[in-house]
């Protein structure tokens, strides 16, 4: 199997793509996102279990040349985001050259060892470690011990709480929020040109990082992920205050699964969940 650098060099040399969104290591060996624009740049590309960033976010942040094509290094969870962006008409399939990576699970910090305790929970549910939509595949997946789903325990605990207890739980979590919007900026599905939080006529979401402002922001952010979140867990990784944001998106994902038997980002020709409807959708809750 050709390796990542070979594929990248070929693409950049033949000018099949204008640039490749990938990963590189900095001078201390920490992995970070990187845009390779030339054949020489391609030598800097790499992929390993520290390649945690979901690079699909750059597909809507960077300018993709009209009728042009860009390359992207993507693991299975990132590919779901790419598919979701195609489903939502943000990019065209032919605009991306997906270099799918066989992935062996990712860990959060550059200093974290690649072992069970550090591997992301999302990797446990990554049913298909092999890329599902790609133009080329690289890398080798090594078997790894599945992480424990510590979140599931918390999730079940929350479900059994009274609503007042749940409110108190979230009040404590949302109180930490400093409104840095890292959760929004890092999210591949948050591509609005103007976020609702930035609209001030009227001011729907209070800009203050106070309890009221934090509640409305976090509820609305989670709601906008309804049937759209692909479960990359980037929001929670980016949050400097350690708010368990993926509990909210996971809940939305559970509703999508239970009520509509739907998962976002699985097939490019599937209509989006909130963009479509069925005459027979459940309406037990409507009087």
């Amino acid at each position: 199997m050709p390796d990542l650098i070979e594929i990248a060099k070929g693409l950049l040399e033949s000018k099949e793509v204008s640039f490749i969104i990938g990963y590189t290591k900095d001078r201390f060996g920490r992995v970070k996102p990187y845009i390779a624009k030339s054949v020489e740049d391609a030598n800097n590309l790499m992929f390993d279990h520290h390649s945690i960033h979901n690079l699909a976010v750059y597909l809507t942040r960077l300018k993709i040349p009209e009728n042009g094509r860009v390359g992207i290094v993507a693991k299975s969870c990132d590919i779901k985001a790419i598919i979701a962006l195609i489903q939502e008409n943000q990019i065209k399939r032919e605009q991306v050259y997906i270099i799918g990576m066989n992935c062996s699970g990712v860990v959060t910090h550059s200093t974290d060892e690649w072992k069970k305790e550090n591997i992301q929970i999302k990797c446990k549910y990554c049913a298909d470690k092999a890329p599902m939509l790609y133009d080329a595949v690289a890398g080798t997946a090594e078997p790894f011990e599945q992480p424990d789903d510590t979140q599931e325990v918390l999730m079940q605990k929350l479900e059994t709480m009274s609503s007042a207890e749940r409110w108190d739980f979230w009040a404590k979590e949302f109180e930490k929020c400093i409104k840095c919007y890292a959760c929004r900026q890092v999210c591949p599905m948050c591509y609005c040109e103007q976020c609702l939080a930035e609209k001030n006529q009227p001011q729907w979401i209070t800009t203050s990082p106070t309890p009221a402002g934090n509640f409305s922001w976090n509820i609305i952010k989670a709601f906008h992920m309804a049937g759209r979140c692909v479960g990359c867990h980037e929001c929670e990784r980016a949050c400097p205050m350690g708010i368990p944001l993926t509990l909210l998106t996971r809940k939305m994902g559970m509703v999508a699964g239970k009520e509509f038997n739907y998962r976002h980002g699985m097939a490019i020709d599937q209509p989006t969940l909130v963009g479509s409807y069925n005459f027979n959708d459940n309406e037990d809750f409507i009087k």
Binding site: S163, W167, W170, A222, K287
Partner: peptide
């Protein structure tokens, strides 16, 4: 209303999940 109905399915579950009792939010046709 078909699109709205799908959204509400999520929204009521979300509000419930963050601790806003479902007795506070009602839907009808």
């Amino acid at each position: 209303n078909f699109h709205a109905r799908r959204r509400w399915t999520f929204f009521k579950e979300l509000l419930n999940f963050v601790g806003i009792d479902s007795t506070r939010l009602h839907f009808s046709w």
